[in-house]
Design a protein around this nucleic acid. Structure first.
Lengths: 116, 116
DNA sequence: CACGTATTTTAGTTTGATCTAAATTACGTC
DNA sequence: GACGTAATTTAGATCAAACTAAAATACGTG
C-alpha cells in the first residue's frame, strides 16, 4: 500500500484500463481496441505504470501478452472503484472526464492529399 | 465517492496537506509554515482543490481561516492513508517523493546586485 | 531464417498541473 | 477609514505526464 499505488489510480486513463480488466483478462491488443482514441504505444506505457504499481500482472500466451488486474493489491480501493463504476451516471461522467483530462498532443488528422 | 476525490489524493503535495490536517485543525498560514518549500499561494490553491473534492472544509475564525479534514469523505481510503503514514519508512519515502515529483518553476533566487 | 503479427521502447511533442510573484480581497483594530 | 495581517485570486512560467510516430523487440509459422 504505497504512494505509487495511489498515484497510479489517480489517472482517469489508467482507471479506464482497470475497468476493462475488472471482469476479464485481456491482451494488450484487446485493451487498445477498446480505447480507439489512443495509440497502442500509449496503452502499453500505461500498462507498464500499472504493472509497476502492482495493480496488474501479465503472462505471455503465444504471441500475445495477457493482462489481469490484481484486485487484492487494491485493497479497500477495489470496492470504491466498483461503487464508482456501478453508479448509473458513470458512463456519462467518464466521457466528460476523459475529454477534460486528456493530456499530450491531440490526435493528428490523417494528412490527406499530399502523397508522401 | 467520485473521480474528483481519487484525483485529489493522487497528488503528493495534497496528501502532505491532508497529513498535516489529519490530527488537528490548522489555519492556512500554519499549513504553509509547515511547508517551507512552497509559497502561501500554492498552498491556498491546493486547499481549494481539496475543498472542491470535499476532502477538507474550512470555517472563518477571526481573521484566520481554519481548515479541517473530512475523514468520512475519504471512506476506506482514510485507513489506507493512515497505514501509509504510520509506516516507519514513510518519512524517508516522503522526502524522496516530494523531491522527485515537484512541478512548476524552481524557486527563484534573490536577484542580488542589480538594483533594478 | 524470412515473414507477419503483437508488443514494447525510444525520441520528440503537447498540454495541464503546479508553481511563483504580485494584485486583490477579507477581516480586525485603532 | 487607514493600517496590518491573513488568505485568495490572477497572470504568467516551468515541468513532467501523457501522448504520437517510428524503431526495436518478441514470438510463432511456413
Amino acid at each position: 500500500m504505497d504512494a505509487a499505488l495511489i498515484s497510479a489510480i489517480g489517472s482517469p486513463r489508467r482507471r479506464e484500463i482497470l475497468r476493462l480488466l475488472w471482469e476479464q483478462e485481456l491482451t494488450a491488443g484487446a485493451i487498445h481496441q477498446a480505447m480507439p482514441d489512443v495509440t497502442f504505444g500509449a496503452v502499453s506505457l500505461q500498462l507498464k505504470v500499472l504493472a509497476g504499481a502492482g495493480l496488474v500482472e501479465s503472462r505471455p500466451d503465444a504471441q500475445f501478452r495477457v493482462y489481469k488486474v490484481r484486485r487484492d493489491a487494491l485493497g479497500p480501493v477495489a470496492a470504491m472503484l466498483e461503487e464508482m463504476w456501478t453508479d448509473a451516471l458513470w458512463h456519462l461522467k467518464l466521457k466528460a472526464e476523459l475529454k477534460e483530462s486528456r493530456r499530450g498532443p491531440r490526435p493528428r488528422r490523417q494528412s490527406k492529399g499530399k502523397k508522401r
